[in-house]
């Protein structure tokens, strides 16, 4: 690698469209699982609040799942989802997202004061109306905090998918390594970090829109 600069800017200039496509692919692979994870975690969290006995075993299970090394899980799925398919990477990422979002959902739902719950009932809210108008909005700061952790982790984990043939920006690491050419690797690291940063900022913005009160009380960071 003698004499090869860390970044060859003209390569980046020549490959802007390519880098954009990889970034978009990466965003889909990493973030769709987080959305699905949210859709799974909220009902699961509701069930855990209603039947508290469910929570410990489920939380323990997902704690173990979260600790499983991503590459190993991708590989184990290959016989079912195929090599170099999006599903091989997205299915495990969904499980990781649920593992982060389930505890935050439960914390958020439990943070609603009993007096508020009873006040809603006294005002004539049915269980469904109370859930959508009182409990879920109160959980929003917790959910967005969980989403931030889940999304950022998912974005950096998705790159490992390149080793099983589908990792969005992760492909740049393989490509650069095989050609002893650091420019794509640096571009990949920067783009992954940028994608994480932008997603994180969007989620902070979303929280401010949905739960403007959270900034003052500091709930859910």
């Amino acid at each position: 690698m003698d004499g090869e600069p860390l970044v060859r800017w003209h390569w980046i200039g020549d490959h802007l469209g390519y880098l954009r496509d990889l970034t978009l692919d990466h965003a889909v692979i990493a973030l769709v699982p987080v959305l699905i994870g949210l859709l799974v975690a909220v009902p699961l969290g509701l069930a855990c609040v209603r039947w508290p006995r469910l929570y410990q075993p489920l939380a323990g299970l997902f704690n173990v799942v979260y600790a499983l090394p991503s590459l190993a899980v991708f590989v184990v799925l290959i016989p079912y989802t195929g090599l170099a398919t999006r599903a091989t990477v997205m299915v495990p990422l969904t499980f990781y997202a649920v593992a982060v979002l389930l505890p935050t959902t439960v914390d958020g739902l439990r943070a609603v004061p009993e007096a508020v719950r009873q006040a809603a009932t006294a005002m004539g809210y049915g269980p469904w109306h109370r859930l959508t108008a009182v409990e879920l909005p109160a959980a929003v700061p917790f959910l967005t905090a969980g989403l931030r952790v889940a999304a950022v982790a998912s974005i950096s984990l998705a790159a490992v998918g390149a080793l099983v043939g589908r990792g969005g920006l992760g492909y740049l690491f393989i490509d650069g390594f095989q050609r002893t050419f650091p420019t794509p690797i640096v571009a990949g690291i920067v783009l992954v970090a940028l994608l994480a940063l932008v997603t994180d900022l969007l989620l902070v913005l979303l929280r401010r829109l949905l739960a403007p009160w959270a900034r003052r009380t500091g709930a859910g960071r």
Binding site: L6, S156, L169, A193, L197
Partner: peptide, 17 residues
Amino acid sequence: VARALPTLGLVTLAVLL
């Protein structure tokens, strides 16, 4: 920062450098 960095990128870059 630690959450956002891709491990595969760091590993390949470290070895190239």
